[in-house]
């Protein structure tokens, strides 16, 4: 008993509980407003609509599977930028970020809490958008039937989303404090994510087109994407504290 009283209050809250608290805060807020999911979902549908316009004159002979991987990832990248910006503008508007900094929560936990929250929302949107994409572009006459297993597509999307959420959280925290919020996010986010997007599209395309060597290409590219994720997220994790402190 005496020992416990001697310790400061913050020590008693485990990192796991701090993490859960931040994550729950984001999820509860989302369940109440449903702002992020609806805006991201709607935006993704609009992107698919624009794709249809772009492909509308491609003709019957056009094999859409060859560019499907890139199109799918592009929709996810645009949607994720919208979501990342939203998720941190909320914190900024209500002065919530300052409150988080005042609370006895370790700074790295804030990073993981926000990043995992963003990852969950991004994956939720994908659960809805990816089948829709298949339904619109890859199910009918435009596509030829030779795709690889669907779980490979899912795995590639998950690995990419982890990278997007991890680095995106850091960059979005920076960009909400600048003058040109979402524009700055795009300027920072796209070139930083570029190598990841390139390998992810290679992995996705190999599976979707059913390339004869798709298993080998898929695992090489996915490995490269995973290495990139690890390097970038550890860098973001180490640097997040400085961003919050500034």
């Amino acid at each position: 008993m005496q020992d416990e009283r001697a310790l400061p209050v913050s020590r008693k809250i485990s990192s796991w509980r701090q993490f859960k608290a931040i994550l729950r805060k984001d999820i509860v807020m989302e369940l109440r407003t449903k702002e992020m999911l609806t805006s991201m979902g709607l935006y993704a549908i609009l992107v698919l609509l624009i794709y249809y316009v772009a492909l509308s004159q491609a003709g019957q002979g056009f094999d859409v599977t060859r560019i499907a991987g890139g199109l799918l990832l592009l929709a996810i990248v645009f949607t994720s930028m919208l979501g990342l910006n939203r998720s941190l503008v909320h914190e900024q508007d209500q002065g919530c970020l300052e409150a988080l900094l005042l609370s006895p929560i370790d700074r790295p936990i804030i990073f993981f809490g926000k990043a995992v929250g963003n990852l969950i929302f991004l994956l939720l949107v994908q659960v809805f958008v990816v089948p829709l994409f298949y339904f619109i572009f890859l199910s009918g006459g435009m596509a030829t039937e030779h795709t690889g297993p669907w779980w490979m597509v899912a795995l590639a999307l998950i690995v990419t989303s982890i990278g997007i959420a991890g680095v995106g959280t850091l960059l979005a925290t920076m960009s909400v404090n600048t003058k040109g919020k979402d524009f700055i996010l795009a300027v920072l986010f796209i070139p930083i994510m570029f190598p990841l997007l390139l390998v992810a599209v290679a992995a996705l395309s190999a599976v979707i087109t059913g390339d004869p060597e798709y298993v080998r290409i898929f695992w090489t590219m996915l490995g490269a994407a995973a290495v990139y994720d690890v390097i970038m997220i550890s860098a973001a994790f180490a640097l997040y504290e400085f961003i919050l402190g500034a």
Partner: peptide, 16 residues
């Protein structure tokens, strides 16, 4: 101060 910190963080990430 914020500009300097953000720029430094971005410089390190970009260096990768």
């Amino acid at each position: 101060e914020r500009r300097a910190t953000y720029a430094a963080v971005f410089c390190i990430i970009a260096w990768i």
